[in-house]
Structure formats: structure tokens, C-alpha cells
């Protein structure tokens, strides 16, 4: 490193590095992801929640964004094969691995009224009677107007 002072080209290099680092035109650009959370009193379902067949539940999650929210989705699918796990702090006990016969599946998208920066997802859903009980996975996702996305997922069970 002692050669730096002697050799101009090295100084030029570092000037170039510094100069380029200072280029900043992040204005007019949304660089923030939306957020999504079930970690509040009304948030539903919480990790390891057991849902009873035939019952109606209100799925609730809070979403926010710095500029404008755009759309959200709810996906409930079985985890009988233990293919994944959720991102909640609590770890749930999973049942035995089994084959699906008539698993419950819920796959829906919704849009959010334009211009909102915070919104509470509120989906009323009846668990059908004729579906397989066992481990399920519940995944929420939300996008903002720019195209950033946030996701969260929760391990739940459907019981008789």
C-alpha cells in the first residue's frame, strides 16, 4: 500500500471510486416494501390455531406501505407432506405425514382501494365440512403500487 502515494493512477482509481459512490438520484423512486402482520390482538389466525370444520372465521391481517397499497392474497393449502413451515416464532407440532384425499384449498386475490397506506385485511371464510383434516398452511401476501411484495405464513390445523 505504500506505493499509493507514489503512483498517480492509484489515486485516480480511488477518486473514481469515491466519485461514483456519491451518485445518488433515488428521488422519485419507491424503494420501500409494504409490511404485513398478524402480530396484534385481532390478527387471525395466530400460529398453531385450530380451525373447526363447518365454522366460519374472519381472517385478519394488518398491511401498511409508505406510498400506496395495491393488492393482497390469501392462500390456504395442506401441509400433510410437511413441505414447508411458517415464519412465526412459535413452532407447532405437526401431525403425521399423510396423503391428501380431498384437501381444503383456498386461493383468492383482492385489490385494495387506491391511495391507502394502511389497511386491515378482513376475509370471512367458512371451512367446508367435506375436506381432509390435518396440518394446513395459511399464507398472506400484499403488494404496493410499485410492485414490492411482503409475505407472511402461518401453520394452522383443521380439526373435526
Amino acid at each position: 500500500m505504500k506505493f499509493i502515494s507514489k503512483y498517480n493512477y492509484l489515486s485516480i482509481l480511488f477518486v473514481l471510486i469515491l466519485a461514483s459512490c456519491s451518485v445518488d438520484d433515488s428521488a422519485n423512486k419507491d424503494e420501500e416494501k409494504p409490511t404485513i402482520s398478524i402480530n396484534y390482538t385481532e390478527g387471525f389466525p395466530q400460529a398453531c390455531t385450530e380451525l373447526v370444520k363447518g365454522e366460519t372465521y374472519t381472517f385478519k391481517a394488518m398491511v401498511t406501505d409508505n406510498l400506496a397499497l395495491a393488492a393482497y392474497s390469501l392462500d390456504i393449502h395442506h401441509n400433510f407432506d410437511h413441505h414447508t413451515h411458517d415464519d412465526q416464532e412459535e413452532t407447532c407440532d405437526l401431525g403425521d405425514v399423510k396423503a391428501a384425499v380431498n384437501p381444503f384449498i383456498y386461493v383468492e386475490n383482492f385489490t385494495i382501494e387506491e391511495g391507502l397506506t394502511s389497511y386491515e385485511i378482513n376475509i370471512s371464510l367458512t371451512i367446508p365440512d367435506d375436506i381432509d383434516t390435518g396440518d394446513y398452511h395459511c399464507a398472506y401476501s400484499v403488494t404496493d403500487l410499485t410492485g414490492w411484495q411482503a409475505r407472511t405464513s402461518i401453520d394452522i390445523k383443521i380439526i373435526e
Binding site: A70, Y72, N109, T143, G147, W148
Partner: peptide, 12 residues
Amino acid sequence: LNPTSSYYETLQ
């Protein structure tokens, strides 16, 4: 490949 703000079967 532009990420839009819309969903298709819960996928962006």
C-alpha cells in the same frame, strides 16, 4: 420482467 402490483392465484 416487471413485477406488477397484481396477483394471479395468490402469486404476484
